[in-house]
């Protein structure tokens, strides 16, 4: 055996930045995550040229999936042009030579922080969600070793109790984003922190969703056609954000998740959070030829 056999010719870094051993590890762990939907698979999580907490988990998965024919969309809070989304997209271009798109329907690979696009993802698309805290039990059990036992026993009683206490105190469930949800009837996940609006999009989806927490070093997945049920009581239904009836200031379109922009005098205006979807509506209004994908919601209600 010689050093030459062990190494590749020198280059500044690998295609996709990560070296082969890092990619193999993420491949191994991603496959385990797909095999046990919702189970958090520990992985080494290499450092990448971005600070931890800035999408390094999602980035490692995206880098592993990257190929020159990939068409990549990166969003942060629904926006393609949020500075961190721009930075990640720029990095993917540098190390992957991939094509970029803002259009959800044109992407093969979507890396997102905190949102699932409004246009329905297809079976040939992969959604990679950045996750700050993968542990749905964190709020009730900060010790991860204890939490692991609870997952092993499917013991989610404390989570139910937490929701029940919210109802007693506040008259409703007060969970915001990252609503705890039962995957494949077995593992409760913290769905990234996507808003409640987006959680039903994971249920029996056509696409594969991979969730990756770089700092906390966990990968988990929701394969296509998998049950995802937000924890709710028989008599107190799961409720998405009350955005169905409000129109987007930019596009005039109603029925999608919104950003609220405070204005002087106590007023607010609302804009669609999926910014490129709003842009497409504006383009259409201005007479441009635009094609829309199917949407998860129609007129503000889930279309199933």
């Amino acid at each position: 055996m010689s050093l030459a056999e062990l190494t590749a010719p020198w280059q500044r870094f690998n295609y996709g930045f990560l070296d082969e051993s890092a990619k193999r590890e993420i491949r191994r762990k991603t496959l385990k995550a797909i095999a046990v939907p919702g189970y958090q698979v520990p992985y080494a999580s290499r450092e990448v040229p971005m600070a931890r907490g800035w999408g390094t988990g999602g980035l490692q998965v995206t880098l592993t999936l990257l190929k020159p024919s990939s068409v990549v969309k990166v969003i942060d809070q629904g926006a393609d042009d949020s500075v961190n989304a721009v930075s990640i997209r720029k990095f993917l271009r540098r190390v992957g030579g991939v094509a970029e798109t803002l259009d959800t329907t044109a992407a093969t690979l979507i890396q997102s922080r905190h949102r699932i696009p409004e246009e329905k993802l297809r079976a040939d698309q992969v959604l990679v969600l950045q996750v700050p805290d993968p542990e749905p039990l964190r709020a009730v059990e900060p010790d991860i070793s204890e939490a692991r036992h609870m997952h092993a026993d499917a013991d989610y009683g404390l989570l139910w109790l937490k929701l029940y206490e919210q109802i007693v105190r506040s008259g409703r469930i007060m969970e915001g984003a990252s609503y705890p949800s039962l995957v494949n009837g077995r593992h409760v996940i913290s769905p990234s922190p996507i808003p409640r609006w987006d959680v039903p999009k994971l249920h029996q989806a056509d696409n594969l969703t991979i969730l990756s927490a770089g700092r906390e070093k966990r990968i988990y997945a929701v394969p296509p056609h998998t049950d995802v049920a937000p924890l709710a009581f028989d008599d107190i239904a799961y409720r998405v954000e009350d955005h169905a009836g409000i129109a987007c200031e930019r596009s005039g379109v109603k029925g999608y998740f919104l950003n609220e922009l405070p204005k002087g005098g106590g007023a607010s205006v609302y804009e669609m959070s999926d910014t490129h979807f709003a842009t497409k509506h504006i383009q259409k209004r201005e007479g441009e030829a635009v094609s829309f994908g199917a949407t998860y919601y129609r007129k503000g209600s889930l279309a199933r």
Binding site: A8, Q11, R12, F13, N14, Y15, G16, F17, E20, K23, R27, T30, L31, I34, A35, T64, L66, K67, P68, R93, R94, V95, G96, G97, A123, L208, P223, P224
Partner: peptide
Amino acid sequence: MDALVTPTADDIRTSEAFEALMWALTR
């Protein structure tokens, strides 16, 4: 650093093999 990195033949092979494994397990 701004130069594009192109995948080697090995990179393409491993990426194709992994996709087959990933889609096989996904579907």
